[in-house]
Each structure stands twice: as structure tokens, then as C-alpha cells.
Deep mutational scan, measured.
Amino acid sequence: MSGIALSRLAQERKAWRKDHPFGFVAVPTKNPDGTMNLMNWECAIPGKKGTPWEGGLFKLRMLFKDDYPSSPPKCKFEPPLFHPNVYPSGTVCLSILEEDKDWRPAITIKQILLGIQELLNEPNIQDPAQAEAYTIYCQNRVEYEKRVRAQAKKFAPS
């Protein structure tokens, strides 16, 4: 494992614990031996107030490669969400998460999670990743928002 990646992720964890947006979660997972795995984080993004996503808490896994922060983490909703920019596998399609697009090593975990929260309610229809959600979003916004509200209710924190 890269010392650069681990040191950056340790800084990220410290900064997150000191200050993070209300309702968001970002925690490194534990290895079988109980030690912390900084390369694999369990996160959760709350649906934004005043949107059909409100009330939901959407679980996301963030996986970092050894060359982080040169390369972005892979962000994957578990379980996958109904959304035009979420692949059926759950992987998020967002330009700041793509090395050859808008990724920059200075982007923080907090910025990534806030960017994904923004994307939930403002899909990028130029870059669809899920045919069904994309089609319904474009053709029947009322039905799309109904499905999103049902999903938010399903993923409401207990």
C-alpha cells in the first residue's frame, strides 16, 4: 500500500471527524483483525431537504486505489439507486470521479460526498449510466419523482 495514499486518507479521516456536513457519514471499514482499512470507507449521503430525495439516507462505498490521490476513489451505492447517473452496479457516474475528466488530487472526501448529493437531485442527462431511470427522467418527470420519493422512504434511517 502506498504511504502517500494512507497518509492522505488519515488526514481526510481526521478532517472529517473534526468537521463534516450534518447527516453525512464517512467511516473507514475494519479489517478482520480489527485494524482500520483506510482504503475502503462506508459512507452515507442524506437526501437534500426540499427535494424528492429528502428523508432518505443512501449508503455508498468509497474504494481507494494505491495511487490515490492521483486517481479518484470508486464510489458505489449499496444497494444501487434508481438514478440516471448511477450504473446498474451502483457505481456513480460523475465527472469529478473520473481521472480523465474533472478529478483533481486536491478534491476531498467531503467535496465528493457533497457533489454526489447535488447530483442526486440534478442528474447530468449528457452522461446517462442507467437506461430506465434516464428514460423516465426525460419522458415523465412526475413518475420519476414518485419513484425517487418511494426510494427515499425505503432508505429512511430507522
Rank of each mutant, 00 (worst) to 15 (best):
T91E: 14
I96C: 03
C43N: 11
E54Q: 12
R141C: 11
P32G: 11
K18N: 03
I125W: 12
P105Y: 03
M62G: 04
Q117T: 12
R8I: 00
K154D: 12
F22G: 08
E42R: 10
P80V: 07
K154L: 12
P157S: 12
I4F: 08
G56P: 09
K65G: 11
Q11R: 13
L97E: 05
N31Q: 10
F155G: 06
K30R: 14
S70G: 14
F82T: 05
E143N: 12
A131T: 12
G3Q: 05
V142F: 14
P79G: 14
R17C: 00
E118L: 10
V142Q: 12
I112R: 02
E54F: 13
L119Q: 02
S95D: 01
S95Y: 06
L97V: 14
P72H: 05
C75V: 15
K18Y: 06
N37E: 14
R141Y: 10
A106K: 00
W16F: 11
I136E: 12
A156R: 13
G115Q: 02
R61P: 09
E42S: 11
C93H: 04
Y87L: 02
I107Y: 06
I116L: 15
K59Q: 11
L114D: 09
N121C: 12
A44D: 07
N40S: 13
G55A: 10
I112V: 14
P128F: 01
V142T: 13
G50P: 00
G3H: 08
E12P: 02
I45E: 02
K18P: 00
N121S: 12
Q126L: 10
S7P: 14
P32H: 12
E99I: 02
T51N: 02
A131I: 04
D66P: 12
P73K: 02
K146D: 14
N140I: 04
P28T: 00
V27T: 03
F24M: 10
R104G: 04
D66N: 10
P69Y: 01
F64C: 08
I112T: 15
I112Y: 00
I96M: 08
D19E: 14
K74L: 15
S158Q: 12
I45K: 01
I136D: 10
R104Q: 04
Q139P: 07
D66V: 09
R13Q: 07
C75Q: 06
C138G: 08
N31Y: 12
V25D: 10
K49W: 08
P73W: 02
M62N: 02
M36Q: 03
E78K: 15
